[in-house]
Each structure stands twice: as structure tokens, then as C-alpha cells.
Amino acid sequence: MIGRRWYVPWLFLAPALLVTAVMTWGPLANTGVLAFTDARALGGGQFTGVENFRRLAQDDEFFRALANTGLYLVVVVPALVLLPLLLAQLVHAKLPGLGAFRAVFYSPVIASMVVVGLIWSWLLSSEGLVNAVLLRLKVIAEPLPFLTDSTLLLFSCMLVTVWKGLGYYMVIYLAALSNVPNELYEAAKVDGAGAVRRFRSVTVPTVRPTMLLVGALSAISATKVFAEIYVLSSGTAGPGGQAKSIVYYIREVGLGVDGEIGYASAMSLVLLVGTLGLSVLALVLRRRDEGSQA
């Protein structure tokens, strides 16, 4: 062990700790305090107890944002647990060119959500390619309002989230698949198991911990959805602002000209409880999973 003066470690830590304290812990503490006040961007700050939470319980717009975010979660998480696994299976083999396909499938991850959102806004607009193709194929008679109907808008955003996330979760699955012993597949094949059967009985059980991880990661990121909705609706959240997510609503309430900091902080605490809940749920599921395998 190297002897050193007591303050040396703190000198190494100081810059990082200063940034984290000022930019994370301070604001978090502030959120916890201001949630119980009527603070606004331009004044206020009287202690009001649980008034903000009482107001939240009666705020239809908040419940709509909550429902939208919940719907988002319910659709996006299963898609992002399953589809990237299938994609990973597709590129997980020793065949020529698969490395290139991997890189190609990852490219939407590299692009910014704004770029991806603008690309899809054009594809999904009433004159866009998707409607043109559907019209040409006579699947529909009129262009579908993918971006101007609030429900369809939400589903369009989900499509964008899934499209952009496929490659990211594929890479996580690839790391897990490389640990699946080849002999298991061979044995299953000898036993006459078909492709679907092998997937269900060999692949899924061995990568299940990773599926839980992907489920948790995609769920946490889905509760924070913002950019997709903002970009696809050009900052309107659909007709009448009906397609807001929780983060969208927090930003609108807390960061307007005279932002209601207190009320937005209360909402932020609800969001924090939601994301922490999802993290804990993932941990519990994972532990139970390990328990059942032991």
C-alpha cells in the first residue's frame, strides 16, 4: 500500500463530486422540498403541504399524460424485449457479411432522436411514403392521419422508439447469446425440435436474465419519453395537446414563462417513484428468476 496524505483522494474526487452535487443532488433535494410549496419561476415559495399532490389527483391533463405514458410502456416494452432478440438471433451466426448487417442494424441508434423523428415525420405525413404505399396497395382509401390524430400519433411515436431502439438492445442480446452453448442447439436438433421450439426451449431460458434487463431498461426509458412526441407533433403534442407524456407535461408546467416550479416538482416526484418502482421490480424479478434456477 502506498502511503499518502488524507486529502489526496479528495483532490482527485473534488471536481466530479462538485459537478454531481451541484447538478444532481442539489436539484434532487430542491425537487423534494419545492414539491410542497407553491414556488413559481418568478416568485412564490410558500409552504403549502400536500396541496400540489391534491391538485395532481384532480388534474385531468396529468392523468391523460399518465395514461399515455402507461400505454407507451405496455406497447413498447414487449416489442423491445422480443424483436431485438429475434434480430440478434438473425445476425448471430458464422456466415459471411453478418458483421456488416450488425453495423447496419445499429445505425438508427447512432442518429439523434431529432433526426430520426424528422425522418419519420416525413414518412408518416399525409403526403408521406407510408400513406402513398398503403394507398397504392389499396389497403386504405384515404391517407391515415398518423401525425394529426392523437392516438395514431402516440402509436407512430412508439413505432419510432422501437425502430430506433432495436439495434441498441440487439447488441445487449448478442453479448448474452455468445454465452449460449452450441451443444444445446445440437442436442435439441437431434431430438427433432423445430426452429420455434428451439427458440422457446433453448434460447429463451438461457437469455432470460438479459430479457429482464432489457425489459427494465426499455421500461425506464419509455416512462421518460419526450423527444419522439415533441418532434413528430412539431412541439404541439397532437391536436389539443392530447398526446402529452409525463415528461412533456412536466416541462410544460415547470419551464414556461412563469413556470409552476412547485407543481412541476410534485409531478417529478411521482415520476421518480415510478422509475424507482420499475428498477426495484426488475431487481425482484431477477432475484426470483435466479432463485428458481438455482
Partner: peptide, 11 residues
């Protein structure tokens, strides 16, 4: 485990 979105108003 503290999402940025939770603290963005106070940041």
C-alpha cells in the same frame, strides 16, 4: 437511478 427528467426543472 435518478433520471435527469425528474430533476430537469430544478437543474
Amino acid at each position: 437511478v435518478v433520471p435527469f427528467e425528474v430533476i430537469m426543472v430544478n437543474v
